[in-house]
């Protein structure tokens, strides 16, 4: 069993432009998500995630155009998330050339969307994104929606098991406690979810050092690690992380 652990850069896209784009890199247009995607592909990214944070509904069409252009130039799998809440939108994004879509708030509000999406397009296309935060009172991790603004009362572990049952092919797990802190991924959370479900789990939130990737993939048992800032701000390159992981005995695609 030698499936490689995956390293996935995440690109936040607003109205077709990258927010927090790569700096210090000689790109013609660092704000162009497709150019950045091609750059990460060359660096050895195993997959890409585009998170559409466009606020206005009218401008959502821009993400379809980003997906179309990416599919013409970048030949690794990519996922589009953010603002997708109907089967029609899923179909449009996949037809534009994306390999997977991710659902966050709409999955909680309408779990049948996960089920229908998996039935129509296949589980391998449907990623459920879960934003998790530790709740002292509940002594459990709680699911948050609406970009982390709304607590749901749902247990993360129960919700993860539920989305697997519904047909999700993968879970994108973000620790809100760790996110932005660059102090390492949330190992206990990641490990707990990985032990609860049998679908692949992508760990997200907290990457700061190369060691953090090794820890979440080994101790946290994640199948993939997602990061944004450490790559965008060139703390290290994707290739450096993968060479480091390889030296640590982690199976990666070099």
């Amino acid at each position: 069993m030698v499936l490689a652990k995956r390293i996935i850069p995440c690109l936040d896209v607003k109205e077709g432009r990258v927010v927090k784009g790569v700096q210090f890199v000689d790109l013609k247009d660092a704000g162009d998500p497709v150019e950045l995607a091609a750059f990460y592909n060359k660096e050895g990214a195993d997959e890409l995630v585009f998170l559409d944070i466009t606020a206005s509904f009218e401008k959502r069409e821009t993400m379809l155009e980003v997906a179309r252009r990416t599919a013409k130039e970048v030949f690794i799998p990519f996922t589009v998330g953010g603002g997708i809440s109907t089967i029609e939108q899923i179909r449009n994004i996949l037809n534009a050339g994306a390999d997977k879509i991710s659902l966050n708030t709409p999955a909680v509000e309408n779990p049948s969307l996960v089920k229908e999406g998996a039935r129509i397009f296949g589980s391998q296309c449907i990623v459920v994104a879960i934003d998790a935060r530790w709740n002292e009172q509940l002594e459990d991790w709680e699911v948050y929606t609406h970009g982390g603004r709304q607590a749901t009362g749902l247990s993360v572990l129960d919700w993860a098991a539920r989305v697997e049952e519904l047909g999700a092919g993968e879970i994108l797990l973000t620790s809100m406690d760790a996110d932005g802190g660059q102090a390492g991924y949330d190992i206990p959370l990641t490990r707990a979810v990985c032990e609860r479900v049998s679908i692949p789990v992508i760990a997200s939130g907290g990457a700061g050092k190369m060691e953090d990737f090794a820890r979440v993939l080994i101790e946290g048992r994640a199948d993939a690690a997602l990061a944004a800032s450490v790559f965008h701000y060139r703390h290290f390159s994707i290739r450096e992380v993968k060479e480091y992981l390889h030296a640590q005995g982690v199976e990666v695609r070099l």
Partner: peptide, 12 residues
Amino acid sequence: SAGKVPHMGWNR
């Protein structure tokens, strides 16, 4: 019993 199905990802 091979592990996770589908077999999804990068393999040698």
